[in-house]
Design a protein around this nucleic acid. Structure first.
Lengths: 213, 213, 213, 213
DNA sequence: CATGAATGAGCATTCATTCAT
DNA sequence: GATGAATGAATGCTCATTCAT
């Protein structure tokens, strides 16, 4: 993970913080914030305990930086919608599910939301920030897609705000059941058959067939 | 791993152990296991720090007892199925959703699953036990219902194992979005309109209308 | 110092704080606040590191309590003046010098003023409190005595505010020269010959002989 | 104990070491030795942390060099006496008081004695050296002046060793009261009125008027 | 039995000192 | 030489657990 052949340290103050955050994220997720020792983070990041404090002022600062780092690159809701405004809503949802499925199959991607979830009680402000800048934006983008489907008549007149929960919920449930409650097992990718099944049920539930509902 | 022969989490007819567990659960959920002090549990339970150790051998023992206490009263899968084997699967699902909705609106009911979720990394054996004895049984019961709908022709030939995620997922998503990421706010009951919406989409998605997806 | 024959601990929570303060005072004076380890205070006070924190919330709290403990029993200026308002001012000063001499010969009495002096830079508020409640009161009492001497014609019309420095200054100088700069040596009591000499010069300097000045 | 053969506190013709000592003195006085960080000294001296160690082997070395630097320029007792052996002892004392008053009004002059005082417990050898080479010489010079006054009949037959405490003590007391206990306030110069008052009382106390105490 | 004083291992954080660059 | 990243010993403080009373 860390190249050992090099001299004891290089002038790479700019890469260190990210390495620390990577190590911290893994440990925080595995053991929780309180049970993670700064020294362990340091060891996993390949530096000494004291060096951590050159980059972060405290263990809490590491946690906050972790969340902030995840907040920055989040695509804006409007940009998502712009990219998708022409496509068929059903196909868009299909794409969203596939993307969700692959993202959530990746333990590294899953790690931060899990961490925020785990420590929400201790860091409500950070959890709120995460919710606002990540969760709400994603939900809003999905709502917009559903709304367009309704407007175009492809979908029945469902409440888009609620309907997004039918889109992401089954995937979330699958992940929670399979990974969080079975955390000791190697994470398995989400099977395509499940995504097919979910999409099938979902799209039948949403589709405007001229009779249902 | 899990000693079933001796219910040590209830070794006295006393009320004390249960009061300790109740207090501990609240604190564990609010602050996490590591950040909860035994002294705080004692205070909230109305006894002295030392007295805790008369009932529990360690803080971990409190956590384990907490999970084990929740494991006992879970109805067996077969009993659920027996109770429900005559009813219309769609109506059964409607009932399940209503029940889920009210149970998950109750912070006290939600507390233990949240705790297990939060501390799964630290207590994988307990998380696995919880999953096996609670989660898997509930899922299996739902699967059975769906399977019966398929068998009876009410539902399209979906995969029941996956379909259960479409049943509970949206409710789970609603709770996660609303409560866990907004932990500082007073928990709001799950609105009936959402359950209606979810059931509407779900049942349309499952229903065998003669045309399918 | 601490009776070792007794059981490991007794229920004497009320005596502990004073023992801790006594130990802390010695160490603070010898090594300074920053260089004194809480563990050393604990050892000298005959208890464990952790037990310190049952009585004091931090090392700073120990310091503050030390100063506050010294502030309480300080005799009020008015009470001093009342007790002395009838006596001959010269004899009163003689008495003050004798008292000062014996008090300042006692390392335990000297310890706190020295500590406050040493740490005044780090704890200006405490130093100010000490000054207000101890130093200023003592100075004012002396001023009152001098003023009375002037009023009664025994002393020449000196400025009492300044004159008090001629009273305490030489004793202070003696102590500073002898003890603070020779801290490693056993402290010697202030010799009576010095007090005699000082009083002789002082009283001749103050006396209204009808010619001097 | 004190290596006199090699002035290591000035091992370079450079200005650097002196700048380091100047910066260190300010910080040591303000915060104490233990609470002063080498990095702060470096910043205030305008060089890097590592560079400090080119001039000084440790933080203690800086402290020692500080004291030693102050020891060198002290005029010898004999030279002082030589310079003053012809003048009137009373006038000499007046001059000494004026000089003392202006020197002690200067925070920079006061800094080192205060530092030695503060850290005497931690550096007894240095405090002793300071006492021997600075304090004792000054006291001896004063004693010689007083002795001459006694020999010439201007002063009463006081003990010169003790009498010096009557000379410097009041000024010391004034400074201690005003500056050390009021360290947060801007230092005020010693008022001439106080020096006048002190000299008036002192000289009346010493003067041989033909009647004595 | 209950209490809470006491313990001491454990951890976050600091900072003098070193040394690769 | 100079720099400042890195180290790691040191230390304040916490808290699960024990046990004298």
């Amino acid at each position: 993970m860390t190249d050992v052949s090099e001299p004891k340290w290089r002038r790479r103050a700019d890469e260190r913080p990210d390495e620390v955050l990577d190590a911290a994220l893994q440990l925080f997720v595995r053991n929780g914030f309180a049970a993670t020792k700064v020294e362990d983070i340091a060891r996993d990041a390949g530096l000494s305990k004291g060096a951590i404090y050159r980059y972060f002022s405290s263990k809490e600062d590491i946690f906050e930086s972790l969340v902030k780092r995840a907040l920055t690159p989040i695509a804006d809701h409007t940009s998502i919608v712009a990219r998708t405004s022409q496509a068929d809503p059903a196909m868009l949802l299909r794409g969203v599910l596939t993307m969700l499925s692959s993202r959530l199959s990746d333990p590294d991607t899953l790690a931060l939301p899990r961490l925020v979830l785990m420590e929400a009680g201790k860091f409500p402000a950070l959890a709120a920030a995460y919710r606002r800048q990540v969760v709400d934006k994603a939900l809003l983008a999905l709502e917009t897609i559903v709304q367009r489907g309704v407007d175009e008549g492809t979908f029945r007149p469902v409440n888009p705000h609620y309907a997004v929960r039918n889109i992401i919920g089954p995937v979330l449930a699958h992940v929670l059941i399979g990974e969080i409650f079975g955390i000791d097992k190697e994470p398995e990718p989400i099977p395509a058959a499940f995504i097919d099944s979910h999409f099938d049920i979902l799209i039948n539930g949403l589709a405007n067939t001229g009779q249902g509902g």
